[in-house]
């Protein structure tokens, strides 16, 4: 990505807490208007990276830019450009929703009263917090509404980049759906970074993902790029009547890279469920159908091609190598690596 097009650019960010390296040599770029997911297991360094980008933590080394402004040299300017919703979304329990947002608007540089009222009004509507919710004490709100208040707060000062740290943690499915709709509504108008380990959430919302493991970026790209890198090929599921060995032979004539993933499962009569993995990228289903139809003794009931999910990619990307498993004092052995994100 051309640095001029990058909304966020991080180069070789490292941060240590005592002897423990929370992140090391983290480099990535996020384009303008992109929705990017920050993925990683607990202790991978997601929150540390996000906190460095917000200016809450200083990097031990490396540099980052937000909208072309250096985090080290222009921290105030960067803070004006950023909206941030921290993990667990802390809010003052005793304040009312409207009151809290007006106070935060004043802190975020919306100087004139009319300007503050207008912006808060817009966000109350956008985040569905208007009418009686606006007058409720934050302590009385459900978790879903609290997340909306947190998002409204992050959006107050017209930020160009919004960082959401574990935004759907602890929400029920209805609340997740509501929150997802809100985030979908923001797509295109600003750059969004979601730090999460809820994979389906990231898969649904994000254009690209950056996967962190043990404080390092282990993968970055669009779902297609990540699939190609970590889970190349496809899996085919077949339900067919006939000899499994013959079905395999017929299919391998079409695609020599094909291999059976597990033993056939008999589903009654001569019907079997078979699973094959293929190294070939194009969809070969029509050619498999033709090949099996040409064989008189085989009757195909169903064929389905499955792509590797983000979960498969995540597991492949974050799988520790044999060498790392043998290394003493690795991140998961450190207290900060066990309890949660460092």
């Amino acid at each position: 990505m051309d640095p001029a097009d990058a909304s966020i650019r991080a180069v070789d960010l490292s941060r240590s807490f005592g002897r423990h390296r929370a992140i090391e040599g983290v480099s990535f770029a996020v384009g303008r208007g992109e929705v990017v997911g920050f993925l990683g297991p607990n202790g991978a360094g997601k929150s540390t990276t996000v906190r460095i980008l917000t200016g809450l933590l200083r990097a031990s080394s490396g540099e980052a830019w937000v909208e072309g402004h250096s985090l080290a040299r222009e921290p105030e300017r960067v803070q004006q450009l950023l909206g941030y919703m921290p993990e667990n979304n802390p809010l003052p329990e005793d304040l009312r929703v409207g009151e809290f947002l007006r106070y935060r608007a004043a802190l975020k540089g919306l100087r004139r009263r009319r300007e503050r009222e207008q912006r808060v009004g817009e966000l109350l509507v956008q985040c569905d917090l208007q009418r009686e919710t606006e007058r409720k004490r934050i302590g009385k709100l459900s978790k879903g509404y609290r997340q909306r208040v947190g998002l409204a707060d992050a959006l107050l000062a017209h930020p160009r980049v919004v960082l959401l740290d574990e935004p759907t943690l602890g929400l029920d499915p209805h609340q997740v759906l509501g929150f997802r709709r809100l985030v979908e509504g923001l797509r295109g108008s600003l750059t969004l970074v979601l730090s999460s380990h809820v994979l389906p959430e990231v898969e649904r919302l994000c254009d690209r993902s950056v996967i962190l493991n043990r404080g390092q970026v282990v993968a970055a790209g669009t779902p297609a790029e990540l699939r190609e890198q970590f889970a190349a090929g496809r899996t085919y599921h077949l339900r067919a009547e006939g000899s499994p060995a013959e079905i395999g032979d017929r299919l391998r004539r079409v695609d020599p890279t094909l291999r059976r993933e597990e033993d056939p499962v008999e589903e009654g009569g001569r019907v079997h469920h078979l699973r094959f993995s293929s190294g070939a990228e194009p969809d070969l289903s029509p050619r498999f159908v033709e090949a099996l139809e040409a064989a008189g003794a085989i009757r195909l009931h169903a064929i389905h091609r499955e792509e590797a999910s983000l979960e498969d990619i995540f597991l492949a990307a974050t799988r520790p190598s044999w060498k790392e498993r043998q290394r003493p004092g690795r991140a998961e052995d450190h207290p900060a690596g066990r309890g949660g994100d460092a």
């Binding site: 803070q79 921290p86 802390p90 540089g109």
Partner: peptide
């Protein structure tokens, strides 16, 4: 403890 301090310090205060 609640994290409100962190939230406040992400503004220009």
């Amino acid at each position: 403890r609640t994290g409100m301090l962190e939230r406040t310090l992400t503004t220009t205060v």
